[in-house]
Each structure stands twice: as C-alpha cells, then as structure tokens.
Design a protein around this nucleic acid. Structure first.
Lengths: 230, 230
DNA sequence: GTATTCTAAATTGTATACAATTCTGTATGC
DNA sequence: GCATACAGAATTGTATACAATTTAGAATAC
C-alpha cells in the first residue's frame, strides 16, 4: 500500500511548481478563492501550503492583504547565485575530505552517462535538470543534510532564470553548451584528487560565469512574462 | 497607528521561540487542540504557523499524524555549524569587497561597545545575543539578503546548544570567555584590512572551535531536557 | 506472557460560515 | 482637474463542525 498523500501536500507541490515557473507574476497578488477552486481544495489546506511557501522564500505575505509572488529583480537573482557559491563551495570542500571512493566513482559514472545528452541538443529543461542533479549529488557527498536542503531551495527559486540563460547560451552557440561540460569535469577531477582548493576554484568560476549573465536573463524573463508568446 | 499584527503572526512568533528553546522536546508530537488553547487561538491560524515552522526546519510533519519537534542529534548540530561556516565565510569574503568604510567603522564601534559586557560576567543569554548580532551584522555587510536570511534561520535553530556551550565555557574559566573576543577582533581587523583570506581563516577557526564542543553540548542538552532542573 | 483483534476515544484534515478588513468605483467638494 | 469621502463588493482572518484517520486500551486467543 502506497503512502497516502494529503491534500495539503498535493496543493503544496502544485503551488511550488507554479511559483518556480512564475505562473504567478512577480509581485502579483494571489487570490485565495480563485486558486482554491483551480486546485480543487478549500482555502484551509491552500493557506497552509501558501504559508510553507512563504517560509521557503517563494512567496511573501502581508497581513490582511494576503499572499504575493516574490519579486523578480537582478539583485534577487544575483543574491541567489552568490548563495549557491557559498553552499556549493563549502559542500565541495567537505566532500573532498569525506566522500567515499565508491561515491566519487559513482558520480563519475553519472557524469559520463549524461555526457551524450549534454553534447547533443537535448531539451534545455532536461539538460538543466541533469545539471542540477549533478550539483546536488556533489553537495550530498559532503554528508551535510542542511547544505543539501539549502541548495535544493536555491535551485528551485533560481531555475526559471537559469533555464532562460541556458537557452540563450545554446542559441548563441548552436545547440552546444561549451564549457559547461568541461567545467563539471574540472570540478570532478579536483574532487577525485581530493584537492579542495582546486575544486572550490573550479566551482566558484563555474557558477560565477553564469552569474554574470543573470541580469540579462532577468530582462528576458520580464519580456517573456509580460509579452504574449506564440 | 501601529501596524496590526495578525493572530497567525503572534502565534508564529510564540511557536518559533518555543521551538528554538525546545519547549517541545526532540521528536515530541505536538497536540494541536491543546496548543491552540494555550496560545488562545483556534487551530486554523495555529496550523498555518506550524506549517511555516516546518518549512523553516524547526518542526517536521507527518500526514495524518501531525506535527513533531525536530530531532536533536550531534549530527544535526554539527551540520548546522558547518552550514554557518559556509554562509558566514562567503558573506565575509563579499563584505571585504563591498562593505563601505563607514559601515566597517560602525561595526568596529559596536564591537567596542559590547566589549565591557563581554569581559564582565553578564548574562550568558545576553552575551550570546550580542555575539549573534555581531555575526549577523558582519554577514549583512555582504549586501546579500539571502545570506542574512539563511544565517538568521541557522542561528535560531542552533541557539539552544550554543547557549549551553557558552555556559560551560564560562564555568570552566570563571565568568570569562577567553578567545571569543579576540577572535572577533581578529575577524574585524582582517575585514578592515580588506583581506578576505585572513578574514575567512579567522572566521572558520572561530566557528570550528565551537563546533568541536557541540557533541558534548548536545549530551548536556538532553540531560537538561529530561532531568528536572531545580 | 505475548501477540492479535476489535472498539471507543482522541486527533487530525478540510469545508464552510461569518466577521473583519481592504478594495473599487462613484459621488462630492474644492 | 484633483483630492476626498463613502458605500458596496470583494477578499482575507479565524472559529467551528464534522469526516477521516490514528491511537490507546481492553478483550481474546495462543
């Protein structure tokens, strides 16, 4: 018998997805009655789920005015990239000390396994999912659950912008995303060699490079969110 | 006219305090009806607040079984200390690059201002509050709101153990907490000199030192939580 | 004594009702 | 035109009721 999901959990998952995708536009006020009808639940479980998302930074809340989508500004996204650097670099340092050899081997296998998809022009969303999975597995080699948890939260809030950035990157280079793969290899090699300084430097450069393109991606995000797409 | 606090907000603040202080014992199941009576609110706003605390890592939730206090284990506390290292070191590096001179001066003034309280044997809880305030202000000099937000969350979840650790430290050394003050000075001096490497090294050592005493503090925490104190 | 089954009590999950507050649009005054 | 005041509509805040589920304890079987 499979575990019984509660209504709150279903609603929460839906809302989290919607918030990640900016199905609510930045700063948009959220109408509870409307949304509860849409999700097929009453306002009670809906509000419980909304409160979780406030605590996770997806939404904001104003007393007697209700829930709002988080803002989308370059500053916000730059902050998220920096927080990723903080979490991922420290996790990587710890991983260099603590990861078991077989865990590193397994991660190397994963990297090889996703390589063909990275090389070919597969779906950008899938490509990003693989990238996130690699980074998350890396962070989990630290053995620190809090760091993993924080990274997952950051990933969910930054994904929309990263996807735009990735698409742009592909468009500019004709389906290829040069550098990304070799950056991952560089990080992995430093980890294999248990060289925290080299690993951190590689990770820092890798994330920083995308951070530099973030402001532009935010501009594009706004045009996508407010101009009707075909 | 002062801002009107909602019932949820009041309940949330109370619960957060209670959870930080382990007024709920580790893994303890939380009875909603009882708690709602205690806090003078119905279950609806109570559950909204509880959901926020789940998302913040103070509580856990199991479907159809309700809310539970988080576990208290050495591993959990060690993870929190490591997460602090990740956040605070990166924030400090950024602060070295970005903090305005007058902000650094102001922080130095604050350090001097709290020095007498640190030297004398003032209330440990106050002393810890001052320590947290210093670290938080430091982190805020990074200009990164996410890092500040994360640090505040970590502080709240680790405070109970840190307070125990601080008390022990004082008992062993007769009201003095040697090294703490000079550690802060060392960090501050490196920041003033805009030397990120030195600053990070000082911060890392500072936190790491307390982390090493964490397991012991957790033992004491358990004895305090389950053995009646006078 | 231990395990199992069953029943009643307790507890959680969610819909709904209604009070409190905010919002919207119209009228009014200057 | 612009600001203000106001009334009605819409929306949020919270208590309550009741269904669904879990828990606790007694009774039974082995």
């Amino acid at each position: 018998m499979s575990k019984q999901l509660s209504n709150v959990d279903r609603v929460y998952e839906s809302l989290r997805q919607m918030a990640a995708d900016f199905a609510f536009k930045p700063d948009q006020r959220i109408n509870e009655s409307e949304l509860s009808k849409l999700l097929g639940a009453s306002r009670t479980p809906l509000r419980e789920a909304l409160n979780r998302l406030v605590a996770e930074g997806f939404l904001t809340f104003q007393n007697n005015r209700g829930f709002f989508c988080r803002s989308l500004t370059p500053k916000y996204i730059l902050d998220l990239y920096e927080a990723r650097v903080a979490i991922e670099c420290e996790a990587l340092r710890l991983a260099c000390r603590r990861a078991k050899d077989h865990e590193i081997t397994a991660l190397g296998d994963y990297l090889e396994q996703i390589e063909p998809d990275y090389e070919s022009g597969s779906d950008p969303a899938e490509q990003l999912a693989m990238d996130e999975a690699f980074h998350l597995r890396l962070a989990q080699l630290s053995g620190n659950d809090e760091l993993g948890r924080m990274l997952r939260n950051l990933n969910d809030r930054i994904r929309y912008i990263r996807l735009i950035d990735l698409k742009r990157l592909r468009d500019k280079t004709g389906k290829r995303v040069p550098g990304e793969l070799s950056a991952h290899s560089r990080i992995f090699l430093a980890l294999s060699g248990r060289d925290p300084a080299a690993a951190e430097a590689a990770m820092r450069g890798h994330i920083e490079k995308r951070r530099e393109a973030a402001t532009e991606a935010v501009q594009i995000a706004f045009s996508q969110l407010y101009v009707p797409q075909d």
